[in-house]
Amino acid sequence: MKKVTYNLSKLNEISDNDPDFLRAMVTMFLTEVPKDLEHLAIAVVENDHVNVHRYAHKMKPSLEMFGLRSHNEILILEDWGKNKNTTKDIKNEFMVLHQELENILIQLKRDF
């Protein structure tokens, strides 16, 4: 039995269980998240607060809609991006986020 690490209940609720809407949202997730994740990775490595905030904020609704556990990490990254005076190292939070999203992308490609 495969381990499902996402939850489509919010998407099913807002779409009234419309399979076409669900497929469209999954397709958008599969298209946009890898690009945003790459931009976020670059921003994290460069300690670019503005772009860490920008991409974390952009990705947050998708993580919420797909019921992902890494929602907490994206909030930490988003907050770090707003606070330019912080010395906090966010690489661990990014790595947790990155790993979960890589797994989710694989799972969604298999399932859809």
Rank of each mutant, 00 (worst) to 15 (best):
A43F: 01
V44W: 02
V44R: 00
V45T: 11
E46M: 05
E46I: 01
N47M: 05
D48Y: 12
D48G: 11
D48S: 14
V50A: 10
V50G: 01
V52G: 14
H53M: 09
H53W: 12
R54D: 14
Y55E: 12
Y55G: 07
K58Y: 12
M59K: 12
K60Q: 10
P61C: 14
S62M: 15
S62Y: 15
L63T: 05
E64M: 07
E64R: 08
E64K: 10
E64T: 07
E64V: 08
M65Q: 15
M65V: 15
G67K: 02
L68K: 10
L68C: 09
S70Q: 05
N72A: 13
N72Q: 12
I74E: 08
I74V: 15
L75W: 02
I76N: 06
I76K: 07
L77Y: 08
E78S: 10
E78T: 07
D79Q: 09
D79Y: 02
K82E: 15
K82D: 12
N83H: 05
N83T: 05
N83V: 05
K84R: 13
N85W: 01
N85I: 02
N85Q: 05
T86E: 07
T86C: 04
T87F: 06
K88I: 14
K88R: 11
K88M: 07
D89C: 01
D89N: 02
D89T: 00
I90E: 00
K91G: 03
K91M: 01
N92M: 02
N92I: 03
N92F: 02
E93C: 06
E93H: 11
E93L: 00
F94Q: 00
F94T: 02
F94L: 04
M95A: 06
V96E: 02
V96S: 05
V96Q: 04
V96K: 04
V96F: 04
L97K: 05
H98S: 09
H98Q: 08
E100G: 03
E100Y: 01
E100T: 03
L101G: 12
L101I: 13
L101D: 13
E102K: 08
I104G: 00
L105N: 15
I106M: 10
I106E: 14
Q107F: 03
